[in-house]
């Protein structure tokens, strides 16, 4: 793996009213790679995502995507640069149909509504939502909302997908299905993924590389097998969870 990183996060920090939520965190994701971002509750994982996705700029540090500096860009600009994201607390467009939710994502890449609708139907099929596509998104169950969240982000045709706990709340069987979808996408389209995940079953199945945060700091990184044996990681996080 000598490729230049697709995403290169260098020493970013963020404080909220004195609370240092993220402190000098660096991480890199190479093209085609799936990287897991783990750590206990409140470790700063979502905050790190929000900085990458342009929700707010980092207080310090730099974020580069495909060689270009994207630090401080707005969320919509980051999306156009090629980064799609899901929200930990899913944000479907409740009053719109499932299909229209995904269609709106697909309009990122085309002005043509019919083409966007066709792309949306394809994606809904892939995520097992085809039969529910005319329902209002607000009528979906939580697992289906999670699927919709991913399908909608995928519709923007990202090169890098940021997933924030999309497996949370899924049953083991559903988790495995979702894992398979990502494996297929990764294999077929070379989609690069950075995923925050508490469900270790999914993390271990998907990640080629893992970064661990605790109290806003990066405490470990490396190959999955090696990271889960790291004493610092076990102490801060995995100890309670028992892999």
């Amino acid at each position: 793996m000598t490729d230049a990183p697709l995403l290169d996060v260098r020493l970013i920090s963020k404080s909220f009213r004195g609370l240092r939520a993220v402190s000098q965190v660096s991480l890199a994701v190479r093209p085609g790679e799936i990287v897991g971002l783990i750590g206990p509750n409140g470790a700063g994982k979502t905050t790190t995502f929000n900085m990458i996705a342009g929700v707010f700029p980092p207080d310090e540090g730099e974020i580069r995507f495909d060689g270009a500096d994207i630090t401080g860009l707005r969320a919509d600009q980051v999306c156009h640069a090629g980064i799609g994201r899901t929200f930990q607390l899913v944000k479907p467009f409740y009053g719109l149909s499932v299909e229209d939710n995904v269609l709106i994502g697909a309009l990122r890449a085309t002005r043509d509504v019919d083409a966007a609708r066709a792309a949306a139907v394809d994606l809904l099929d892939r995520f097992g939502l085809a039969d529910r596509r005319h329902q209002a998104a607000g009528a979906l169950t939580l697992p289906d909302r999670k699927r919709l969240e991913v399908a909608r982000a995928m519709a923007t045709r990202p090169r890098l997908l940021l997933l924030d706990e999309v497996m949370a709340g899924l049953r083991p069987g559903e988790t495995d299905e979702m894992v398979q979808v990502f494996q297929t996408l990764n294999r077929e389209t070379g989609l690069t993924i950075l995923m925050i995940e508490h469900v270790m079953r999914a993390v271990m199945a998907l990640s080629q590389h893992i970064v661990v945060l605790n109290y806003g700091e990066r405490i470990a990184e490396g190959e999955p097998e090696q990271v889960v044996r790291d004493p610092k990681v076990l102490e801060s996080y995995l100890g309670e969870e028992a892999v």
């Binding site: 944000k91 467009f93 709106i104 990122r108």
Partner: peptide, 11 residues
């Protein structure tokens, strides 16, 4: 429906 989600979709 949701401004944050809209922005994340490139709007």
């Amino acid at each position: 429906e949701d401004q944050d989600a809209a922005q994340a979709l490139g709007i």
